[in-house]
Design a protein around this nucleic acid. Structure first.
Lengths: 123, 123
DNA sequence: CAGAATCCCTTGGGATACTG
DNA sequence: CAGTATCCCAAGGGATTCTG
């Protein structure tokens, strides 16, 4: 295979495959989005509980935005409970649930390769 | 389980599990990083080839930074070839290779759930 | 309680020009 | 060829305040 061919092949990869990876990453690359998804997966959650589990290190404004982003991305949905004051429950969609194993894989990957700086890294 | 307990449990999850997911995402969330990793996986690559495969939509400056980031993250390594002008080959490390299946999973996930906006999303 | 409005600041990435 | 230096801009996220 000549060099031009391999370049063309690579262009195919870029156009047809790689872009989709970035699509996925865009949806979960928010500062807190993956954390929110993982936490919501554990149990039904309300706004203030999610904030609490994030150690209150996220502002209301930011949490609201991230939740809205996740909703727009169709990863979560919310149910507004009747009564006052207003309470809201957040759920994962099927799409969101399908992402959990991948987030778990990322977690395991980080754990496995955490600070390996050995010459044996190249195989 | 009382509410306080579940909150505490969630705090454990946050501290022990979720942070690592973000560690991983931080390494690959650069605008081009996942794309670069996928392309490098296909074959040995040089700076200008990587740029070409990205359709020249990335500036030299940015490409240099992303490659350096990936190197610092220990996802790739480079080999400087003797001679002039200088040529450089980039390789995936074991850590980087281990990430490919996950990137592939993200790709498949995107494809599978691309624009599903149905009420059946909630199961 | 669950957010939206406003304001501000940091960061990432683009463009261009230069170098060993 | 493979970068680095410099400059710039848009976007993301934080803090605070306000509201239904």
């Amino acid at each position: 295979m000549r060099k031009e061919d391999s370049t063309n092949l690579a262009n195919q990869l870029f156009l047809h495959k790689s872009c989709k990876v970035n699509e996925a990453l865009d949806l979960i690359s928010g500062r807190w989005k993956a954390l929110i998804l993982i936490y919501i997966s554990e149990e039904t959650n309300r706004f203030s509980l999610i904030k609490a589990v994030l150690d209150n290190k996220i502002s209301d404004q930011t949490l609201g935005r991230q939740l809205k982003d996740l909703e727009i991305s169709n990863l979560i949905e919310k149910e507004i409970l009747p009564g006052f004051p207003v309470r809201v429950n957040y759920y994962l969609t099927k799409k969101g649930k399908a992402l959990l194993p991948i987030l778990d894989a990322l977690d395991k990957w980080t754990e496995q390769y955490h600070e390996t700086k050995l010459s044996s890294d190249l195989e």
